[in-house]
Design a protein around this nucleic acid. Structure first.
Lengths: 216, 216
DNA sequence: GACCGTCTCCCCCGTGCGGGGGAGCCGCGG
DNA sequence: CCGCGGCTCCCCCGCACGGGGGAGACGGTC
């Protein structure tokens, strides 16, 4: 079964471009379009897309509010891919904080766009605002895919973060994973760097805010 | 307007007792009863009580699952007061983790019961499993009210915890609150003690898990 | 074969954190 | 009036934490 996508952007040109790029893939199907955030909710309810490619800056209801609204009101909500023109767009980070699953630069190459859609559809991508920010800058905003990959935690790092989010100390995590504390420290440092966190507390906050771990 | 309460307990005797105690108060009104957890959701939807006094151990659907179900499926859910017979009931802590707002021992004195209902109705109570556990033991399980009060954070402590949950360091919190770092440390220590947390990370986790702070 | 990313472990080092005390000030209530 | 709880600030102290390096082993890719 193909990945179904709903396009949300106020510029018809962008929608057409995304549609052309995505429809060229046999495993991706664009099932609908919307021109502003206010139209998103009913469309999501009706079309039940796997992924919503959502512009951040839009009239009526911007991407942040639309993201929040979708995640709050829709059962089993779709993955949300935030689309933006500028790399240093503060709105993007807010949208990611609001629960968006990934981000995409409009100037990205078609292959990158396709890759990003597949990533979030598989639920494998995990983006943290600070990491994306620095990486976007580092990569000159031209290779969103690389930024996406770099921002993703490795398996081990994810395991460590999960235990951090349960309140375990480095020594306890080491015991649980049957590795040395030095190893855990290495992973923790990597996690902090990728999440843009200063300490483990901020990392755990990022884990909750990004949906990496959920309350209760 | 009075505080409306829904009683959920499989023992008619307990329901009658709670009803008698609560109805004696002019500002509290018992609007319904249920004998098991499965009947709770439709009743909550129909009666829209301010508070649900919920037994933990029940046939069909226990208090934990019922609490989860209510909080997950009902818009603007009622406060949930977990009722239990035993102080060291692991189920209670699970229920509190599931989002319950307070706990009540069946053997509590009428005045304590009334007080607990009013507390959760006002949304002022804030219970953390570890704190409740130790306090319940400390008070010989006879004074639930005292435990409730002790487990509640003071205004200042709550403010500090909110900032902790935003990733601020002690120095940053001190600057924000315009006090000395030593003062912040005092409050942090108090928060850790009341939450049964070992460090600030565990405190932030408790804050998320208890609903004290919410993602996004 | 060379390269790269991941995972593992090691060193040193500074410091923020948390525990243990104590203490003064204020406002409220018995 | 005195006590009590909340808020404020201070001391000392130990240690886990996090940053900065480096390094070896493995597996996959080019």
């Amino acid at each position: 079964m193909p990945v179904t996508v709903l396009l949300v952007d106020d510029e018809p040109l962008v929608r057409a471009g995304l549609r052309a790029v995505l429809e060229a893939q046999p495993d991706i199907e664009v099932v609908g379009e919307a021109a502003d955030g206010a139209a998103v909710i009913p469309l999501v309810r009706r079309l039940r897309p796997d992924v919503v490619a959502m512009d951040v800056r839009m009239p009526l209801l911007d991407g942040i509010e639309a993201t929040r609204a979708v995640l709050r009101t829709v059962q089993d909500p779709p993955k949300i891919l935030v689309v933006t023109t500028f790399e240093n767009d503060e709105y993007v980070y807010e949208a990611l904080r609001a629960g968006a699953d990934g981000f995409l630069l409009k100037r990205a190459r078609p292959a990158e766009i396709v890759h990003a859609v597949r990533l979030v559809a598989e639920g494998e991508s995990l983006l943290f605002p600070a990491a994306v920010r620095s990486l976007a800058a580092e990569y000159g905003n031209r290779d969103a895919r690389a930024a996406l990959d770099k921002a993703a935690l490795t398996e081990r790092e994810a395991a460590v973060l999960r235990l951090m989010a349960r309140g375990l100390s480095n020594a306890e995590i080491a015991a649980r994973l049957i590795v040395g504390t030095e190893t855990v420290k290495t992973h923790v440092s990597a996690v902090l760097a990728k999440l843009g966190a200063r300490d483990r507390t901020q990392a755990v906050i990022a884990a909750y805010e990004s949906g990496f771990v959920a309350p209760s």
